[in-house]
């Protein structure tokens, strides 16, 4: 009997060791690229042209200055912040409003409307981009942020997550109570429903922000000529078309670093909520 117990303990232990080895390997596989990237940002272009070295050099500030001056990366970051920030605000506010309409009211075709939103959730934006760009062309909205910001009012995926959360977090008795106290429907939504939904809104706002920051295909079809309007993702794509042999590699690496640094920072600060919030509502049961 005691023999089987120790045997069981041993096998758990060896499984645990195996798990740690695999997890450490995956950790290295996930992070090595960023370590190499960081090392490259600290070495000058002329050093890198000779040979990349596994060390931290002293050219970080020089590369930063060059990248800011010749790539105008700060303007790109500002553009990305404007678009992503607006999208995060619009998509979360109006998705909550849409979810509230379906959650709190009873009306004809409600089931059909909900089914419709779920059905269109998976349609990729790429397959309608031809008509989308054609529409913006006709409205004289190319080389303009309107077409990148306003559509986020209708965000089926954000809606779906917020609706899931709302089912558990918004008791309708609260809405009834507000009505009895004489609160109008719009005021009830803004001052009672929105604050209650804060945890879900925060997580979805981060996802909307990061998603838009990283968005590449659609913006590349809308902002083509105006360099001063380009987002970070578009500047990165421009970087690829440059001739690497005559180009300052330290600066290239710095631009890549600056384009991923903000999202990594946001993620590391809020990772607890993000990783937890992901499972929430995604697949229930």
């Amino acid at each position: 009997m005691s023999n089987t117990i120790t045997k069981k303990g041993d096998s758990t232990k060896s499984r645990l060791v195996f798990a740690y080895v695999v997890l450490c390997f995956l950790t290295v596989l996930c992070l090595i690229w960023f370590v190499l990237l960081f090392m490259s940002t600290t070495q000058s272009g002329s050093e890198l042209n000779v040979r990349f070295q596994l060390k931290i050099g002293s050219s970080f500030m020089t590369n930063l200055k060059n990248s800011i001056n010749s790539q105008n990366i700060l303007r790109g970051m500002l553009n990305s912040v404007i678009i992503s920030g607006s999208c995060a605000l619009l998509s979360t506010y109006f998705s909550t409003l849409t979810a509230y309409a379906i959650h709190a009211y009873d009306f004809r075709f409600k089931g059909a409307i909900f089914t419709f939103i779920l059905a269109v959730m998976m349609i990729p934006s790429q397959v309608t981009v031809l008509g989308f760009v054609d529409l913006l062309d006709k409205l004289h909205l190319t080389e303009n942020y309107t077409g990148l910001i306003v559509p986020s009012i209708a965000a089926p995926v954000t809606f779906y997550y917020i609706k899931q959360y709302m089912e558990s977090a918004l008791p309708l008795s609260l809405v009834e109570a507000a009505r009895i106290d004489g609160s109008g429907e719009i005021r009830t939504f803004n001052s009672i429903v929105l604050p209650l939904m804060k945890p879900a809104i925060a997580v979805q706002a981060i996802f909307a922000f990061v998603g838009q920051w990283n968005n590449f295909f659609v913006p590349s079809q809308v902002i083509i000529e105006r360099r001063d309007l380009k987002t970070v993702a578009l500047l990165i794509a421009d970087l690829r078309s440059m001739d690497f042999k005559n180009f300052d590699l330290g600066q290239v690496n710095m631009t890549i670093f600056l384009s991923i640094f903000p999202t990594v920072l946001i993620y590391l600060i809020l990772s607890k909520h993000i990783v937890g919030g992901l499972a929430l509502g995604s697949v229930k049961g």
Binding site: L31, L37, N214, V232, I236, S259
Partner: peptide
């Protein structure tokens, strides 16, 4: 936290990093 991190990296920048 670590294994989810690459999902939030801009794919375009990550590809550029791989190219470099």
């Amino acid at each position: 936290t670590v294994i989810y991190l690459p999902n939030l990296i801009m794919a375009a920048a990550f590809a550029m990093l791989f190219y470099s």
